[in-house]
Amino acid sequence: MSVLILAEHDGQHLKQATRQAVTAAQAWGLPVHLLLLGADTAAVAGHAAQVAGVARVLRVDAPQFEHPLAEDVAAAIVNLARDYKVVLAGHTAFAKNALPRAAALLDVAMLADVIAITAPATYVRPVYAGNVLATVESSDPIQVLTVRTTAFAAAETGGAAEVVTLAAPAASGLSRWVGETRNVSDRPELATARVVISGGRSLGERFEEVLGPLAQLLNGALGATRAAVDAGFAPNDIQIGQTGTVVAPELYIAAGVSGAAQHLAGMKDSKVIVAINHDPDAAIFQVADYGLVADLFEAVPQLTAALKN
């Protein structure tokens, strides 16, 4: 028996989340296989084969995987899964969409956002917006789970896996891809950035103007509270929290963030948390390693200048 990882890629490279899933997969001490779905996975298969800890790369090339949809991804997983002990992926929008569908087709339960694997079928996962950690045991013959990527280090390169090409199941025809909009940014990816600067609604239209230079200086990613996103001051995909992205960077700087439970669920595992807020009673100060009670419109540019020197 082996572990099957649903890989995520952009057509050229594996996503960081998949490398983190490879690390999590070592918990079972079984051979690890990567499932690559795409229209043409030749290039990415070459990179995937070099990831340390991967024994085999399974290539499934088919036109329907140019923009993979849950219906087809789940079918491809189910096609293979009965020969595997574990099916896993990083807890990303892609996997959250497809893996529950595959689990239901296999008639097994699924575990979402696992932060620790304490025994071959025993897992720890956060519930109630991260306010409670539940330890759960599964007795299903196939373990289907997503892992919280920030809880596992990314696997290094240095492997030499064999690459096998498999046939794709027929396209479902239930759904079709229409289009997409991507938020283009030259900053590091939010979920894996070493530094994250996040802002709340009080930044208003000056979100980028105030936080951008500090992010630039520290090579950090920008994050936002739900309120800032809902108000239209920041794009949806940088929302941090229970319903957005979960981050655990080395340094998290929260400017004008009150610290609602929903937001804390997405960042309280950061190594060092800095809060800048004019309200001394803001909940964010209870988790902050360093708190500064100040007007962020003055303090953030000053901090940028102070760190530049």
Partner: peptide, 24 residues
């Protein structure tokens, strides 16, 4: 239910931080 809950626990608390007085 297919999954058995063995226990629930509170996540580890962060050590209290410090307030600083200035940007410097």
């Amino acid at each position: 239910p297919r999954l058995k809950r063995l226990k629930v626990a509170t996540p580890p608390h962060r050590a209290p931080g410090v307030k600083v007085n200035s940007v410097a």
